[in-house]
Design a protein around this nucleic acid. Structure first.
Length: 222
DNA sequence: GACCAGGCACATC
DNA sequence: GATGTGCATGGT
């Protein structure tokens, strides 16, 4: 990848400005959102989180004590509600077991170790773990998601045949200053670009701030 | 009515 | 180790 990623970051930041992510009031709310947003539109997730908030349930102990059926009903708008209810429970049970829900304590652990522990929790894969580390823990970990892979592939910054999560993550982390706030903004801006200009079905490169960074023949089809 | 959205676990080869 | 499939709601 010959691309100067910091230059891409600067270009995006000049165009889009700060994204103020993650849209949540507390680190625990970030964790809940990270599970609920799996393969789902944020708009749907917000409805589920609002329902939890309305019942004052945005607390690990309270979610741990809920009947599964109640939890399923509350998070229903987020989709996959049976699966996500189980995953959310697995996460809060783990949080309580590990630190009694005291997240500050949790995030003081060495990042690599904590990441490995998170990945061992049912329902927490690489993207969810990294979203939690970056946006709840303020730790300098880059979150790779479907938009990252699509945008990087279409611009030829990543080989379409090699979009392995950890390899792409390591390359991006190596090519940028390891800075929490920078990783925060970069991922958020990638999602913004992805939603607006780099849809799965149709790229609208003519309007995209990154259009000047396309390869000579235009976007690479994936 | 089809398509899509800020993944993951599990089965099968 | 790679690839395929189920999971579910709400917006466009």
């Amino acid at each position: 990848m010959k691309t100067d990623l910091k230059e891409i970051y600067d270009l995006l930041f000049e165009t889009l400005g700060p994204q103020h992510w993650w849209p949540a009031e507390t680190p625990f709310e970030v964790i809940v959102g990270a599970v609920l947003v799996q393969n789902t539109n944020w708009q749907n997730v917000r409805q589920a989180i609002d329902a939890l908030r309305a019942e004052e349930l945005l607390d690990p102990h309270k979610i741990a004590e809920l009947e599964m059926e109640t939890l399923e009903t509350l998070i229903r708008p987020a989709g996959y509600f049976r699966i996500k209810a189980r995953r959310l429970r697995a996460v809060v049970d783990w949080l309580i077991e590990q630190c009694d829900g005291e997240l500050d304590e949790l995030f003081r652990r060495p990042t690599a170790e904590l990441r490995k522990q998170l990945l061992a929790v049912h329902g927490v894969g690489p993207e969810t773990a990294d979203s939690i580390l970056l946006y709840a823990g303020n730790l300098p970990v880059f979150v790779v998601d479907a938009y990252t892979i699509r945008i990087f592939t279409r611009h030829g910054w990543a080989d379409a045949a090699d979009t392995d999560y950890h390899r792409l993550q390591e390359r991006i982390e190596t090519l940028l200053p390891r800075d929490t706030q920078l990783f925060n903004e970069f991922h958020a801006m990638i999602v913004s670009i992805g939603k607006t200009y780099c849809k799965k079905s149709s790229p609208r490169c003519e309007d995209c701030p990154l259009r000047s960074k396309l390869p000579p023949g235009g976007a690479i089809e994936i």
